[in-house]
Simulated scan of single mutants.
Amino acid sequence: MNNTGAVNATPSSQALHYRNFTAADIPTAHTLSMVCGWPHRPEDWQFAAEQGTGFAAEENGVVIGTALCWKYGTERGSLGLVIVSPEHQGRGIGRKLMESLLEELGPRITFLHATPAGRPLYEKLGFNVCDTLQQFQGNVGETLPVTLPDGERLRAATTADFPTLIELATRASGLERKTMLSALLEMGENVVLERDGEIIGFSNLRRFGRGLVIGPMVAMRSPDDLRAKALIGYWLNSREGQFIRIDVPSGSSLADWLVAQGMKCVDTSVKMVRNAPAAAHQGAPDPVYRLYGLVSQAMF
Rank of each mutant, 00 (worst) to 15 (best):
V295A: 09
P285F: 02
G209C: 10
E152I: 00
S12N: 10
T74R: 07
R206K: 10
E240Q: 14
G174P: 02
T147R: 11
A172R: 00
F55S: 09
N128V: 08
M220R: 09
G37I: 07
A15R: 07
K229W: 07
M1G: 08
T4L: 07
P27C: 12
P223M: 11
L165I: 00
R153M: 12
A24P: 06
I109D: 03
R91D: 02
E50M: 13
A117C: 00
C36W: 13
L205V: 05
L32F: 07
A48L: 15
A230V: 01
T179L: 04
G241P: 05
E87A: 13
P287N: 10
Y234N: 06
G126M: 13
L121N: 08
V82D: 04
R274Y: 07
V62N: 09
A48Q: 10
P39S: 06
V266P: 13
L226E: 08
H17M: 06
Q89G: 03
V82K: 05
E142K: 14
D224C: 03
G52D: 15
D44P: 10
P42I: 09
G151K: 01
R290I: 14
M220H: 07
I244K: 08
P216R: 02
P116V: 00
A255R: 04
L148M: 01
L168K: 00
D247W: 04
E99K: 13
R221S: 13
K264D: 15
I214Y: 02
T31G: 09
N237E: 09
L185V: 00
L79E: 03
E189W: 00
S269H: 14
R221M: 12
E152G: 01
P107F: 12
F243N: 10
E43M: 12
V259A: 11
A298K: 12
T22S: 13
T170N: 02
A298P: 06
R153K: 08
E167C: 03
G251C: 02
S222V: 03
D267I: 10
H40V: 03
A260L: 15
A255T: 04
I232G: 02
K178C: 02
R19F: 15
E176Y: 00
G233P: 04
G52N: 15
I26S: 06
E99M: 15
A156K: 11
R153V: 12
Q14W: 14
A219W: 00
Y292V: 05
E58T: 10
G126D: 07
V146D: 01
G262D: 10
F55C: 11
E75Q: 08
G151N: 01
H113Y: 12
V213K: 04
D25R: 09
M272C: 08
E43Q: 13
L294Q: 15
E194A: 00
D161Y: 01
L102M: 10
R19I: 12
F111P: 03
T115A: 01
T179V: 04
A114V: 01
Q261T: 15
N139K: 05
